[in-house]
Every structure is written in C-alpha cells, then in structure tokens.
Design a binder for these strands. Structure first.
Lengths: 136, 136
DNA sequence: AATTATCCCATCAACTTAATAGAGTAAACA
DNA sequence: TGTTTACTCTATTAAGTTGATGGGATAATT
C-alpha cells in the first residue's frame, strides 16, 4: 500500500506544479484544497524542501514553491524520498542494497528473481514519468 | 516492502515445486531448509491450502504438496493471496476496488494516474510469471 | 493405543503510521 | 520597533500491522 505520506506529497507537488511559478503557496491552502491534515502536510513539505524539490519563504506572503521545472522532476527521485526504496526487497535495491539475512545465496533465490523483474518494471514507469506528466 | 509472509510463502512454494510431485513434505523440513520460523510457516501454508494451491496430509508421512502444475500457478494469484492487492491504492484495484475517501474525483487525481501505470506494470510481470519460472 | 504432523485458537512484543500539540524562528509590514 | 504571519522543529500518542510463539485439538499412520 502507498503511504499517505507519499499520497499527500504527490498531491501537494501536483498542486504546486499547477500554480504560477515561484509564487509561494501556503501550507494551509494546499492542505485545504487537497483534503490533507495540515500538520502532517507540514512535515512532508519540509522533507521535500530539505531534499531539494521545494523552496520556502517565511512570513506574510510566504509558503512553498517548486524549485525545478515539473518536466525535470522524475518520479524515481520523488518516490525514493517520500516512499523509500523502489525495490520491494533490499537484495534487489539499486540505491539501498542490503543482503537478506535469511538468504544464503541470492543467485538461487526465487524471491530475488521475481522481485528483480518487479523492480525493473516499476523503475521503467517512474523513470519515464515526471511531475509534469501527473498534471491533467 | 515485501512482507515476510509473502517471502516465506514464495520460498515454500518454490521448494515444493522442486520436489517430486504429490509426495507430502513436512512443514519442519521446509522451515529448516528455507530458514523460516516453523510456527509462522504453518499459518502461511494453511492459507495456501485453503485457497487451493496446496494439499495436505496429516499423520506420519504427512505434509504439504502442490495441487497444480507449477506452470499453471500464476504469480498474480499467489501474490493476491499472500501479499494482498497488487495495486498500491484501492482506487486503481481490479479485484479490490474502493473509492478513496479523501479524493473527490479520480479522473483528475494525479496519484490515481501514476498508480494506474504502476499497477499495469506489476500485473504485466505477475501475469507472465508462473511458479515454474521461479525455479532456477 | 501411541505416535506423528497438520489444524486452529489466542496472545504478545516490536514497529510503523498518521495525526496532533506546542514552542521557536524568520520575514513582512505598519 | 513591534506585531502579525507562516514556516521550523521536537515530542508525544493512538491505532494498526507484522512476525513470532505457545498450547491444545484433530486426523492419519503404525
């Protein structure tokens, strides 16, 4: 299941992408428009800012705004920040590789085999979709 | 992340598929061979039996065995039993469809749009892989 | 009857998620 | 300069899920 964090994050990014560029949008406005708990959205936007997707401005007229062009925001990057590894199993992860503690040999592991295919299928989608593609 | 239930279930199925047909294999043997908690595996195999993948036999010489040919066991079916819906969001699920409570309109939802593509990509993999494909 | 191994109940600790509260900081404006 | 505005940060918490375990019931061999 997709976490609400990711769901909310994607919705917020989409909302920002549909706004005029570089005009800060307040958390409250996004939260209201997208039916999101404002406090929860706060922390999500913060993490998107810290990872270089968003800029922010404090005080009156402040808010969050996209830093990059929506065409250049890849879903691979967004998903890794919001949802974590794209792989369902660490032993097939490109960015978060880890050996499975219970598995003696990856080469002969049936789960590894299947999850490798799933990883590639998902990467294919995320790599070929930018934030711009999510806007109607 | 893939649940351990699914991981263990897949490993157990693979192990059974590599055995002689119709010869029951004991839980203990599978658990030992695949490094799985025996008690946990018990409940997994039980659910695979109740859903028509496995047969079982009690008493001495008992155990679990595959009912169908590995070539005819689709990963779509296995995954739905072990892991649940293939879709990451209920609003794009074929078998477990549900409207999102927070989303007023699916047609204009960016999450829906992306997750539809992910669902199709995953279905493509699971539909084209049988248990037989997992065996080396 | 005794042994073997599945069946099925119920419990439990650990972890994660989603949400909330509240105090701190920086910018704008009068 | 002081007040308002809105992001920043930490901490807490309720609820749910996961993975594991224990114990007894049931059925099939020997």
């Amino acid at each position: 299941m997709l976490s609400k964090k990711t769901k909310y994050g994607l919705k917020a990014l989409t909302y920002l992408a549909s706004q005029e560029e570089n005009i800060p949008v307040q958390i409250a406005e996004i939260a209201q428009h997208e039916n999101i708990s404002q406090k929860f959205l706060e922390s999500i936007l913060l993490s998107l800012r810290k990872t270089g997707f968003l800029g922010s401005k404090k005080g009156k007229g402040g808010g969050y705004y996209l830093i990059k062009d929506p065409n250049e925001i890849l879903m691979t990057d967004v998903m890794r920040i919001l949802e974590g590894p794209i792989s369902l199993v660490p032993c097939v992860s490109l960015n978060f590789y880890e050996k499975c503690d219970d598995c003696p040999d990856e080469a002969s592991c049936s789960v590894n085999k299947l999850m490798l295919k799933i990883r590639d299928a998902n990467l294919e989608v995320y790599r070929n979709n930018t934030l711009a593609d999510l806007i109607l």
